[in-house]
C-alpha cells in the first residue's frame, strides 16, 4: 500500500492518496472494503457514511473480481482512494464489457428460469451478482460514475463522498 499520513488533528485531512492492487480473488475483497472504511474515516468522512463507503467499495471490488474471473484474467484489480475536496474511491478492472460477449447470460432474470446444474447455478448467481452490484451502487452512491471499457479494456467505478469543511473530522 502506498499512502501518506495526514494531520488528524486538523479540521480536514490534507490531500493524500492511498493506492493498492489485489489479485482478483474473493478472499481479498473484504480487505479492500475494510481499508476503504478506514481511509474514509481518517479522511473525515462522516461516521454515518462509513457503512456506505464500505458497502460501495466492496460492491465495486466484487464486480471487478467477477469480471476478471469471468474472463480468466489474473491481472490485479486496482483501487485508489484520494482525499481532497471530497473523498474519492476508484476501482478499476481489466475486463471488457461482459454484455458484448454474452448478453444472453446477463439476461437471466430475477424471476423464473429453468432448474440448472449446480455449477451453472453458481455461474448464474455470479452474473446476477454483477448486475446487482451496479443496482446497489446506483442506489447507495449519489456521485457514481462508471467508465469504460477504455483502451486497455477495463472499466473504472468512481465514487465520491463529501468531506466536512471544518471541525468534524473523524475522531479515532
Amino acid at each position: 500500500m502506498n499512502g501518506s499520513k495526514h494531520d488528524r488533528a486538523g479540521a480536514r485531512a490534507e490531500a493524500a492518496t492511498v493506492r493498492f492492487a489485489f489479485t482478483p480473488a474473493a478472499a481479498y475483497v473484504r480487505a479492500a472494503r475494510l481499508v476503504a472504511a478506514d481511509v474514509a474515516a481518517h479522511a473525515g468522512v462522516a461516521s454515518g457514511l462509513l457503512d456506505e463507503v464500505r458497502q460501495a467499495v466492496g460492491e465495486a471490488c466484487t464486480r471487478a473480481v467477477l469480471r476478471h474471473r469471468d474472463r480468466g484474467i489474473d491481472e490485479l484489480v486496482r483501487v485508489e482512494f484520494s482525499i481532497g475536496d471530497r473523498f474519492v474511491a476508484k476501482v478499476t478492472d481489466n475486463a471488457q464489457d461482459l454484455r458484448a460477449r454474452s448478453g444472453d447470460r446477463v439476461g437471466a432474470g430475477v424471476a423464473g428460469g429453468d432448474a440448472r446444474a449446480n455449477d451453472h447455478e453458481a455461474i448464474e448467481e455470479d452474473t446476477l451478482s454483477e448486475e446487482i452490484t451496479l443496482i446497489v451502487l446506483g442506489g447507495l452512491v449519489e456521485d457514481l460514475v462508471v467508465t469504460g471499457p477504455d483502451a486497455e479494456g477495463g472499466t473504472t467505478v468512481s465514487m465520491s463522498w463529501p468531506l466536512p469543511g471544518s471541525g468534524s473530522a473523524a475522531d479515532h
Binding site: G112, G113, L128, I132
Partner: peptide, 18 residues
C-alpha cells in the same frame, strides 16, 4: 453484499421450481 443477494435470488428460484 450483492453476492449474498444473488444467493437469495437463486435459492428462491430453486425452491420455487421444486
Amino acid at each position: 453484499d450483492s453476492t449474498g443477494l444473488g444467493v437469495l435470488i437463486g435459492a428462491r428460484r430453486r425452491l420455487s421450481d421444486a
